[in-house]
Simulated scan of single mutants.
Amino acid sequence: MRKDAMNNSTARPFTQAVKGVRNTTGSYADVARRAGYARSTSWLTKLASAKDPWSVAHPPTPACLPALARMFGVSEARVREMVAHEWFGVDGLSASPVAKALARLVDDLDQDQVALVVVKVANALGESGRIEPRQVAGLLALLERPQERPDAIG
Score class of each variant (00 low, 15 high):
91 D>C: 13
21 V>C: 00
40 S>T: 12
73 G>V: 14
123 N>Q: 12
143 L>V: 08
43 W>G: 02
83 V>Y: 11
152 A>I: 00
152 A>E: 06
32 A>S: 06
109 L>H: 08
55 S>K: 11
16 Q>N: 09
125 L>R: 14
102 L>M: 06
134 R>K: 13
111 Q>R: 13
7 N>Q: 11
3 K>D: 15
78 R>C: 11
100 K>E: 01
123 N>H: 15
152 A>M: 14
141 A>H: 08
71 M>I: 06
73 G>P: 02
87 W>M: 12
146 P>N: 13
36 G>P: 08
48 A>H: 10
70 R>E: 02
96 S>C: 06
37 Y>A: 06
57 A>T: 13
89 G>Q: 15
63 A>N: 03
137 A>M: 01
100 K>D: 03
74 V>I: 09
149 R>K: 10
130 R>V: 07
25 T>A: 15
77 A>Q: 09
74 V>G: 02
30 D>E: 13
30 D>A: 15
148 E>M: 05
14 F>A: 02
84 A>D: 08
49 S>W: 02
27 S>F: 12
76 E>W: 00
58 H>G: 14
112 D>M: 13
112 D>R: 13
20 G>V: 06
127 E>Y: 06
9 S>Q: 02
22 R>T: 09
2 R>H: 14
124 A>C: 07
112 D>K: 03
141 A>I: 05
36 G>R: 10
66 P>K: 10
112 D>N: 11
48 A>C: 12
24 T>Q: 00
43 W>L: 09
95 A>G: 05
149 R>M: 15
27 S>V: 13
56 V>M: 12
59 P>N: 04
57 A>I: 02
141 A>Q: 07
111 Q>D: 14
62 P>H: 10
50 A>F: 09
99 A>Q: 00
20 G>K: 08
75 S>A: 13
96 S>H: 14
61 T>N: 15
63 A>L: 00
78 R>V: 05
31 V>W: 01
49 S>D: 14
70 R>H: 12
37 Y>I: 00
47 L>F: 05
102 L>R: 08
49 S>M: 07
57 A>R: 13
109 L>Y: 09
151 D>N: 11
134 R>V: 10
66 P>E: 01
122 A>T: 05
124 A>Y: 07
28 Y>G: 05
88 F>N: 15
10 T>K: 14
96 S>G: 04
78 R>N: 03
142 L>W: 05
23 N>E: 10
38 A>K: 04
38 A>F: 09
118 V>Q: 04
154 G>M: 11
31 V>E: 09
60 P>D: 09
149 R>G: 10
113 Q>I: 06
104 R>L: 07
42 S>W: 04
127 E>S: 03
27 S>T: 04
118 V>E: 01
132 E>D: 01
53 P>T: 08
66 P>M: 07
129 G>T: 00
126 G>H: 03
34 R>N: 07
99 A>K: 09
112 D>T: 12
75 S>R: 14
71 M>S: 05
45 T>L: 12
146 P>I: 13
127 E>I: 07
24 T>N: 02
47 L>A: 08
25 T>C: 11
29 A>S: 15
51 K>N: 04
41 T>Y: 03
16 Q>I: 10
18 V>P: 00
83 V>N: 14
90 V>I: 06
83 V>M: 12
153 I>N: 15
140 L>F: 06
19 K>L: 00
8 N>M: 07
10 T>V: 09
33 R>S: 00
141 A>V: 07
